[in-house]
Design a protein around this nucleic acid. Structure first.
Length: 468
DNA sequence: GTAGGGTTAG
């Protein structure tokens, strides 16, 4: 290909850049490097764009250090990094929430006489938001950006709106939306961000209002809009309504990426409709649009486990390995849970150990499943040992342990744990409290139940004072 | 750089 480029001097570097970009997009960094070397050999010299493209690829798929190493190579070639170079590096660091690295790159950029642009600041703000440092993010918006003489664009507002929604400030997001319309034109993405936030906080009326706003602005809902709505229906147990929307999407000719399908399949599996789930998955495979990412594989894996189709499970695990996909926390949780469901408690425990051997920390969800499964199989002591070894626990952990301890007659232990939840201000379903109180009444005494009841009440009131 | 999909308790 590079030999061909030689016939077109002048545009050859441009073509080289396009080729490097396309190879990088498909994670093929090795080939991109080969192309670069071939080019130099034949006199097609890389420019700043070539190197920036390569850096973007490294920081997205390989690592920030590898990406940074390319800046040395470009300097050696006599090409100075520009703002785009730093933006690619910063976004790679921000993606991994490496705040110190992001700030260090910002400093370095300033020291080399470059001024961060709106893109740099957007990335920095989004990093602060995702780390929960909202104050810092707003300081960037109100001070740094203004001092730099830059004007926030619609993408800046998208980041702000998403952060507000995801931190539970949906009302502030709506207020901001009303104000921003005088400054920038909202994009379809802007509406989708808001619809997603409203769906997650189950504000159906506002969702419909936002959908009308979306159309009023001349947009048509896209696959993202619909998938967001699908999820809301499934989460509020309106399976039929969700399936209706799914059919409507298909009739309107939306091309399916895996997103909507995964949501539908998992909803069907959760409600025991395995046959329809298989149908949905097969359709995706037939149409050739089955996406090859780990999420789709997790969905399939869960489906086969829940259906007891263990041969398919084996084949799929093999396929994941062959494709070089990296199992994630979800994969491990599905496997552990699947093994427990078929009565393989030992296998599930072994799998948890294997996660550690692979140098990973098992997720809370994975441990929760194992704890619950061990209890249900009658191994409460083994479960409690795992519980004790966990550094972080969530409401699932406690709910499951409290219920299982009650079932096992260990009411003193159960009520102690339940109280610790209330003292921490942790949200715990009322069914756990009922299980403890009625257990105490039946197996200990009415008085013990009453005492615990008052302690719980006191803890709730205390928390109401702390977090009004 | 910013939007949608996958796991666990009752």
């Amino acid at each position: 290909m590079v030999r061909g480029l030689m016939k077109f001097p002048g545009i050859s570097t441009k073509l080289l850049n396009i080729s490097v970009d396309s190879l990088c997009k498909f994670r093929n960094l090795e080939k991109a490097e080969t192309l670069l070397i071939d080019g130099i050999r034949l006199g097609v010299l890389p420019d700043v764009i070539t190197y920036n493209t390569l850096i973007k690829g490294y920081s997205r798929f390989i690592g920030i250090d590898e990406a940074y190493a390319v800046t040395r190579r470009m300097r050696e070639a006599g090409i100075e990094p520009d703002v785009a170079t730093y933006n690619s590096l910063i976004s790679g660091a921000a993606k991994n929430l490496m705040l110190n690295r992001v700030l260090q790159l910002f400093d370095e950029m300033l020291h080399s006489g470059l001024s961060p642009d709106m893109w740099s600041y957007n990335t920095l703000m989004s990093c602060y938001f995702r780390l929960g440092k909202h104050g810092e993010a707003f300081r960037i918006l109100h001070e740094d950006i203004r001092l730099a003489g830059l004007v926030p664009g619609v993408d800046t507002y998208n980041i702000l709106l998403d952060a507000l929604c995801k931190s539970g400030h949906t009302d502030n997001a709506i207020e901001l939306f009303k104000h921003l319309k005088s400054r920038v034109k909202p994009e379809l993405m802007t509406y989708n961000i808001l619809i997603n936030g409203l769906c997650k906080s189950r504000r159906v009326g506002s969702v419909n209002w936002m959908l009308r706003e979306l159309r009023k602005a001349g947009y048509t809902p896209n696959a993202v809009t619909y998938t967001t709505m699908l999820k809301m229906y499934f989460k509020t147990k309106r399976i039929e309504k969700g399936l209706e929307l799914f059919l409507k999407m298909k009739k309107e000719g939306y091309t399916f990426d895996g997103y909507a399908n995964c949501a539908v399949v998992s909803a069907l599996i959760k409600t025991g409709r395995a046959e329809e789930a298989y149908g949905c998955m097969n359709e995706l495979v037939r149409s050739g649009t089955r996406s090859q990412d780990i999420v789709s594989y997790n969905t399939l894996l869960n489906m086969y486990f829940k259906d007891g189709n263990l041969d398919a499970v084996d084949d799929l695990l093999e396929e994941i390995e062959m494709k070089g996909l990296k199992p994630d926390d979800y994969t491990h949780t599905i496997i552990v849970n699947g093994l427990l469901k078929i009565g393989h408690t030992g296998g599930a425990e072994k799998h948890l150990a294997r996660i550690g051997e692979m140098g990973m920390q098992p997720s809370i969800a994975t441990c929760n499943c194992l704890i619950d499964g061990l209890c249900k199989a009658g191994h409460v002591d083994r479960a409690m040992r795992l519980f004790a070894s966990m550094e972080v626990r969530d409401e699932f952990t406690y709910t499951s342990v409290v219920h299982n301890l009650c079932k096992d007659g260990r009411l003193v232990c159960a009520s102690k744990l339940l109280l610790s939840c209330y003292n921490k201000g942790m949200k715990i379903p009322s069914s756990a409290r009922r299980a403890v109180l009625s257990g105490l009444r039946e197996t200990v005494s009415h008085q013990a139940a009453r005492k615990t009841h008052f302690k719980i009440k006191a803890a709730i009131e205390c928390n109401a004072l702390i977090y009004p």
